[in-house]
Computed example of a mutant assay.
Amino acid sequence: MYVVTDDLIVEPLMSPVSSIYVLQRFKIPIDNLEEKVVTIGIKESHNIFKAALSSTPALTNGLRHLLTQIQKEK
């Protein structure tokens, strides 16, 4: 498994302990997490690529339509 940050840095996730370390490093409270399965296809990969060319938060900007769906479901 891997962790991909918003600025598209990919790091291996060795264990559950390392995932806690990543959360602490980015100052993300554990109760702020929600598991969501999404499918990344051609459209999403193009969106991520375009966002990466113009902004730092490429995942947030490239997958914004999926994030909006998550927020509506809550």
Score class of each variant (00 low, 15 high):
residue 54 S to K: 15
residue 37 V to Y: 11
residue 28 I to F: 09
residue 39 T to M: 06
residue 40 I to L: 09
residue 31 D to A: 03
residue 69 Q to S: 11
residue 74 K to I: 15
residue 31 D to V: 09
residue 50 K to W: 14
residue 10 V to M: 08
residue 68 T to A: 14
residue 36 K to P: 04
residue 72 K to W: 13
residue 9 I to T: 09
residue 58 A to K: 00
residue 25 R to D: 01
residue 53 L to F: 12
residue 22 V to I: 15
residue 59 L to K: 01
residue 68 T to H: 13
residue 69 Q to L: 12
residue 27 K to G: 06
residue 45 S to C: 06
residue 60 T to C: 07
residue 28 I to L: 09
residue 67 L to G: 03
residue 23 L to Q: 01
residue 39 T to Q: 05
residue 38 V to P: 03
residue 51 A to S: 11
residue 4 V to G: 08
residue 12 P to G: 01
residue 35 E to P: 08
residue 7 D to M: 04
residue 36 K to C: 05
residue 68 T to W: 13
residue 67 L to P: 01
residue 70 I to K: 13
residue 42 I to R: 12
residue 35 E to G: 12
residue 16 P to M: 00
residue 59 L to M: 12
residue 20 I to Y: 04
residue 33 L to W: 01
residue 50 K to I: 10
residue 46 H to W: 14
residue 5 T to M: 01
residue 45 S to M: 10
residue 43 K to I: 10
residue 1 M to N: 02
residue 54 S to C: 14
residue 16 P to R: 00
residue 43 K to W: 12
residue 21 Y to C: 00
residue 31 D to L: 01
residue 38 V to Y: 13
residue 66 L to V: 04
residue 58 A to R: 05
residue 1 M to P: 04
residue 25 R to T: 14
residue 8 L to P: 03
residue 65 H to A: 12
residue 52 A to E: 02
residue 30 I to G: 02
residue 36 K to S: 15
residue 2 Y to T: 09
residue 59 L to R: 05
residue 19 S to F: 02
residue 67 L to W: 05
residue 11 E to G: 04
residue 74 K to M: 12
residue 51 A to G: 06
residue 24 Q to H: 12
residue 13 L to A: 00
residue 24 Q to F: 07
residue 52 A to C: 11
residue 58 A to I: 13
residue 38 V to D: 13
